[in-house]
């Protein structure tokens, strides 16, 4: 664990350093341009305050910033991944006020006061969430890129079944949906895994749900 922690920190350090140097490079010409030609306007910004993994965060962002980019680029929570950036792959799935959403298809400034949970908020390498643990046990990934989204989605899926939310494969709309492989496959269809770890992912979720595979 020590090794992976160090790697994590140094990788973030590089990313943060990279972001800072990019900021320096861009800020200078903008400052110069603003002095020389006031017509060059910087894009509109807006303030937003929300809670991420239990911690209050306040940001002033270009209004175009997606929740995904706010998490990754501004808060340096790089566990949430950018895959397609168009809501087709599910790699960016996070849980907002208890519901899973595609963080790439929502503006950060629209989340005033919301409670956001990312993969970093579910568990840590030393104290994994049951779903993270099950993904390791069942080998529910290969390259790992889609995994944070898969895990956030899976955690929310079990809550959705518990809450009685029907799916396309729920036979009886009057009855509570059950945790079956067919239900899980349907409900996880918004999370694509290019390595094809699907069957192991379903085994991991089934394990956490406590039903016999």
């Amino acid at each position: 664990m020590q090794t992976s922690e160090e790697f994590e920190l140094s990788r973030r350090g590089v990313l943060a350093g990279g972001a800072a140097s990019v900021a320096t490079v861009t800020l200078v010409p903008i400052g110069t341009a603003a002095a020389a030609a006031p017509a060059a306007k910087s894009p509109p910004t807006a303030k937003v305050a929300f809670e991420v993994n239990g911690k209050k965060r306040e940001l002033e962002l270009d209004t175009r910033t997606s929740l995904l980019d706010a998490l990754r680029e501004h808060l340096h929570l790089t566990g949430t991944k950018k895959g397609c950036d168009h809501g087709q792959c599910g790699a960016c799935t996070v849980i907002v006020d208890g519901r899973r959403i595609n963080s790439c298809l929502t503006l950060a400034v629209m989340h005033e006061g919301d409670k956001i949970t990312t993969i970093e908020g579910l568990g840590t390498p030393d104290k994994m969430h049951a779903m993270q643990d099950a993904f390791v046990t069942h080998d529910g990934y290969q390259c790992g890129y889609c995994t944070p989204g898969q895990i956030c989605s899976a955690v929310a899926v079990l809550d959705e079944i518990k809450a009685g939310i029907p799916s396309h494969v729920t036979a009886d709309l009057g009855a509570a949906p059950a945790v079956t492989k067919v239900e899980l496959r349907e409900r996880m269809s918004g999370n694509i895994c290019r390595c094809g770890a699907y069957s192991n992912i379903i085994d991991a979720i089934t394990d956490v749900a406590g039903v016999k595979a």
Partner: peptide
């Protein structure tokens, strides 16, 4: 679900769980 089952069936046939939440 009880009275307009067609509507529930159509809704859950569309998009993904993440998108339907939004």
């Amino acid at each position: 679900r009880r009275d307009y089952g067609l509507l529930t069936r159509a809704l859950v046939a569309g998009a993904s769980g993440q998108l339907r939440n939004k």
